[in-house]
C-alpha cells in the first residue's frame, strides 16, 4: 500500500536553494512529508543618498528550474496611496506577501488612529517585532525597508528572517546577494579603495566615503542587476526600482535579460 501512495508524481520538489531543504530520501518507511517553505529566487537591493532612498528588485519568480512568471514584484509601498515607505521582500514569496500585508495594515491603522503618517524608524522597529513574533515559524524572507527619516535623509533598514535589524547605507539581499553586496561595498562605501600615492601597506589612506548623487546610484543599481543576471539563473526578466524622495515615490521599470 505504502508504495502506491508514494508513487504519486511529485507535485513540486522543494526549492534547491535553501540549505535546510532535505535532499536525501529518509531511511525506513518512505513518507512524503510536508515542507512549508520554498524559495522563489530573485534579488533585491537598497541604497540611500542625502535626500533619497532607492530600493530595487528583479521581477522573476522561480520554482526550482522553472520560471513561474516574468513579472512578480518584490517591492511594495506600505501604508496606502500617499506612502513614503517601501518594503522589499525576497525569499519565500507567500511569506513575503503575508508580511507586507501585515505591515501595510499596521501602518494604515496608525494613520487612521493618529492622523499622521508613521515614521520610517517606527515602522522599522514594528517590522522587526512582527518578524520576531514568528521566531519559531519564521517568515522565510529577507526584508529591506526604505524611506526618509525625520530629517529628510534617506533611510534604509535591513532584516534577517527573525527580526534582527540595523540601519545601513546599502544592502543587497536574496539569491544574488553574495554577488551584489561586495560590488556595493566597493562602489558605495569605497571599501578597498585608497587615495592614490598615499603610501604603502599600513600607510595607505582609505578613500573618504561620500553620499552619492541619485543619478550615480541609479546607474549602480542597473549595473548590479545586469551583472547578477549574467551569473545567477534565478535573477532576470525585469528590474523594478522605487525612488523615495520628499515629493513621493517614483517607480521605474526596465527590462532585464530573459534567459
Amino acid at each position: 500500500m505504502g508504495s502506491i501512495f508514494t508513487a504519486a508524481p511529485p507535485q513540486s520538489g522543494p526549492g534547491y536553494s535553501f540549505k535546510q531543504t532535505p535532499t536525501t530520501v529518509p531511511e525506513g518507511t518512505r513518507q512524503h512529508g510536508f515542507y512549508p517553505y520554498t524559495d522563489n529566487g530573485g534579488s533585491t537591493l537598497g541604497i540611500t543618498g542625502a535626500d533619497f532612498a532607492i530600493l530595487a528588485g528583479d521581477t522573476r519568480s522561480t520554482s526550482g528550474y522553472n520560471i513561474n512568471t516574468r513579472f512578480a514584484p518584490k517591492l511594495f509601498k506600505v501604508g496606502g496611496a500617499d506612502s513614503r515607505i517601501v518594503l522589499s521582500v525576497v525569499g519565500f514569496a507567500a511569506d513575503g506577501l503575508a508580511l507586507k500585508e501585515r505591515l501595510d495594515t499596521i501602518v494604515k491603522m496608525y494613520r487612521y488612529q493618529h492622523g499622521k503618517p508613521m515614521s520610517v524608524a517606527a515602522c522599522a522597529q514594528r517590522l522587526s517585532h512582527i518578524l520576531y513574533q514568528k521566531r519559531f515559524f519564521p517568515y522565510y524572507v529577507t526584508a529591506i525597508l526604505g524611506g526618509l527619516d525625520e530629517e529628510g535623509k534617506g533611510a534604509l533598514y535591513s532584516y534577517d528572517p527573525v527580526g534582527s535589524y540595523e540601519r545601513e547605507q546599502c544592502r543587497a539581499a536574496g539569491a544574488a546577494a553574495s554577488l551584489i553586496m561586495p560590488f556595493l561595498d566597493n562602489q558605495v562605501n569605497y571599501k578597498n579603495q585608497y587615495v592614490l600615492g598615499s603610501g604603502e601597506g599600513h600607510a595607505l589612506q582609505a578613500r573618504e566615503r561620500e553620499l552619492l548623487p541619485r543619478k550615480d546610484v541609479e546607474e549602480l543599481v542597473q549595473d548590479a542587476f545586469s551583472s547578477a543576471v549574467e551569473r545567477h539563473i534565478e535573477v532576470g526578466d525585469g528590474l523594478q526600482m522605487f525612488i523615495i524622495t520628499k515629493d513621493g515615490i517614483e517607480e521605474i521599470y526596465k527590462p532585464l535579460k530573459l534567459d
Binding site: 520554498t38 522563489n40 513561474n68 516574468r70 513579472f71 512578480a72 514569496a93 507567500a94 506577501l97
Partner: peptide, 8 residues
C-alpha cells in the same frame, strides 16, 4: 499548496 501566488 504553500500559498505561493503569481500571475502571468
Amino acid at each position: 499548496l504553500l500559498g505561493t501566488t503569481f500571475s502571468s
